[in-house]
């Protein structure tokens, strides 16, 4: 099992580092370009939520992003010390609504759930663990 970890601060600009890191990881682990696009999106959605809503922006926090790869699965764990929040409990948006009735926003977590094959949340020792799994090479 391959394993790598990236640590970022709770600032939106840090997402640019995540983009660069994923490009490098893609080359190193030979990941397909559409997969990197998907991982980019999933990580931005999850990290934006953590940075903007989970952590107070007055003080510096470190968010840990751990990547693991087996032959047919990619695992990403996000660990932060923000307020307890389980995104898997959020209701899915109603996609059948008309433009007028469709609320602005609320798509981020839905996209994560749709793109990844498994999304598991747990809270341990005052930290949020979001574990994401994607089947690859299928």
């Amino acid at each position: 099992m391959k394993c790598k970890t990236l640590l970022i601060k709770n600032q939106i600009e840090e997402l640019n580092r995540v983009v660069d890191y994923l490009d490098e990881l893609g080359e190193e682990w030979d990941l397909a370009v559409p997969l990197i696009f998907s991982l980019n999106l999933v990580l931005e959605e999850a990290l934006t939520n953590i940075i903007l809503y989970g952590l107070d922006n007055q003080s510096e926090h470190i968010i840990e992003i751990e990547f693991k790869k087996s032959d047919d699965q990619l695992f990403i764990s996000l660990i932060d010390d923000g307020i307890a929040y389980d995104p898997t409990q959020k209701a899915d948006p109603d996609l059948t609504l008309s433009v007028e009735d469709r609320p602005i926003g609320g798509l981020g977590i839905f996209l994560i759930k749709k793109i990844m094959n498994q999304v598991v949340y747990s809270r341990k020792e005052n930290k949020n663990y979001l574990m994401l799994t994607k089947n690859i090479n299928v």
Binding site: E44, E45, V99, I104, G105, L107, G108, L111
Partner: peptide, 13 residues
């Protein structure tokens, strides 16, 4: 990302 999608929806509305 969804942050961009919301702008598409705002303009459409």
């Amino acid at each position: 990302s969804s942050t961009g999608l919301r702008i598409f929806l705002i303009v459409q509305k």
